[in-house]
Design a protein around this nucleic acid. Structure first.
Lengths: 335, 335
DNA sequence: ATATATTGTGCGACTAGGAGT
DNA sequence: CACTCCTAGTCGCACAATATA
């Protein structure tokens, strides 16, 4: 049954069996138009008979392209599983694969990127968890390394391509949604200033408030975390102009906000950001701004592969609109 | 600033710069004891000066080992991010990397595994989402492909090594925990029979009930999902012997159970399984059986790398004990 | 000159066997 | 015969230049 670990067939094996030269076999695979149809048919027959498949390693050595893409795991992205699946699928469709690695956050992780490159392990990178002052983009661009980021490079000059979600548009929509439900004092719970996407989301809320003519704009900022969200919200509720509704920078913060609202007995309306799995839970029912993660994954990979196929390909920036998923936390708040 | 994409140094480059032969450079890296200390020092100096790193592709071609491990993403594992991170870290420490790919579930996915192998893309695989009747293990074993599974092969004969969590021990502990809190009618909400880990968890609950002398053992089974968990629990609560406490096969089911309990106004005590992020949420506060995912990831990789280093290495089975994380859902149920 | 098939060469590392002390 | 080092050959593929019709 289980065949002994026999040597896998190579071009030579196939060539011999088909009565042609190695190169003809190679041509059948890489330049079929150069081969006479009858010859091609014969070679293809032998190929499928022997189950021959080109050795990727040998091909990589010759072509200097591994068809492998590096991705660093380690951040606490609540959407990681969906993102990885989307990228893997998109990569697989074009003969590429994702290679995972770990590295310290930010600049301290650069040696890991460099190592992967210097050893010819990957052709390029997908970045995520981009931050203000992130030096990875510039560094990679300087080295001429193909990469695409999920997330803008918040620090100009912008180097390389990226795909991102328009967070400001998301929080604007959230603010308008709350306005339409009758709220006039709409607050914000965010991250500490300087976080790029956090500031972006903050700005969307601010702009919408301005457009809508809302003056009282209670806001509080702190690290991500349910407990922080709870404490910040409690502060706002105890403040001089307590909000009746809250836009939150993340679902995690929003869950904390809901908790504070319950404790205070106020029917605070809350909107979160990410539409992570926790938002849909019964008893949470959190209205949230949904990021089109599958789309992001596909687009990130498309841009990268375009770039890989043609290094002169112009850089691209793709800004995707998020969508609001309404649930009870904003339309029918309890507490 | 940005150097032109100059050719990366190779053994020859280093050899020339150090005034030795290519082979001596290779020896310095792979068999230092064969090189005179002074020569070694000189070569090492040149290596670090030029920033030379061996090309993995060339090495792979020669040694027939890519130091890459395949892992199929696609299931709905709520612990995927932790698992991937743990494996990536463990792999990186020994010079390996994880390669992601997608494939249809079960046997239909085998061509994807075969393709990765035939093209020499990976040295072996990590399997997860193992099921009853899963033919991947036997198939891989027949081909002599190194692999380790997260999850037992539920169908004998067991082929290959695996690491798994003792689900029965987890549900036993959960049952005893509920017993200690005064409950005598402890039910179970599970998956449809035939799911391996589901049956395992069921058996632990059953055994514990038997040991504790509990006769009434209301149980219900259905697909995973909050809504299913809710419906199944509602059935049990409306049945002839309504439970006062419930052991659930997953956190998702448990959340549904809590919902049903609230709706029925009974203070049902509930324990879930996985300790996924939702368990710790305020308002959920779900007691849950925690899987040591980081440990599993590390162990899976350790077994696989041992096997890779020595194909004659005996197969191993590692069964890890889960731990109970008590929260309010069991100690202070509301509803 | 066109279409097709063939040989030679090198990608960058490792393995084997031989030469010099 | 150790110890150290080197030359030659190999992995599987693809690019280039060449041969045959």
């Amino acid at each position: 049954m289980s065949r002994p670990p026999q040597q896998a067939p190579s071009v030579s094996t196939v060539a011999q069996a088909a009565g042609v030269s190695r190169q003809t076999v190679s041509n059948v695979l890489n330049a079929p138009h150069r081969v006479r149809p009858e010859t091609r048919a014969k070679v293809e027959a032998v190929i499928s008979e022997l189950g021959y498949r080109p050795n990727r390693v040998a091909r990589s050595l010759r072509t200097r392209s591994t068809h492998l893409i590096g991705y660093c795991v380690g951040g606490d992205n609540p959407l990681l599983d969906r993102f990885l699946h989307a990228m893997s699928t998109a990569a697989g469709e074009r003969g590429y694969h994702l290679v995972l690695f770990t590295a310290p956050a930010g600049e301290a992780g650069l040696p890991a990127y460099q190592d992967l490159l210097a050893r010819n392990t990957v052709d390029g990178f997908v970045l995520s968890e981009t931050t203000v002052g992130d030096r990875r983009q510039q560094w990679l661009a300087d080295q001429g390394v193909p990469f695409v980021a999920f997330g803008r490079s918040w620090t100009p000059p912008e180097a390389g391509s990226w795909v991102d979600v328009d967070g400001a548009a998301g929080t604007s929509a959230a603010t308008e949604h709350l306005y339409e439900h009758g709220h006039r004092r709409i607050g914000f719970v965010g991250w500490p200033p300087g976080s790029g996407s956090g500031d972006d989301r903050l700005s969307g809320w601010r702009a919408a408030c301005h457009r809508l003519g809302l003056d009282d704009r209670p806001a509080a900022h702190g690290e991500n975390g349910i407990e922080h969200g709870r404490a910040l919200t409690a502060e706002l509720l105890a403040g001089p102009t307590p909000p009746t509704a809250l836009v939150c920078v993340s679902d995690v913060m929003a869950v904390g906000a809901l908790q504070a609202s319950r404790e205070a007995g106020t029917g605070l309306a809350v909107v979160g950001f990410d539409d992570s799995p926790i938002a849909a839970l019964p008893g949470v029912d959190l209205t949230s701004v949904r990021q089109p993660v599958e789309r992001i994954g596909r687009d990130v990979l498309r841009l990268l592969l375009d770039h890989l196929a043609d290094p002169a390909h112009p850089r691209q920036r793709v800004l995707l609109k998020p969508s609001l998923v309404p649930r009870a936390s904003s339309t029918n708040p309890t507490g």
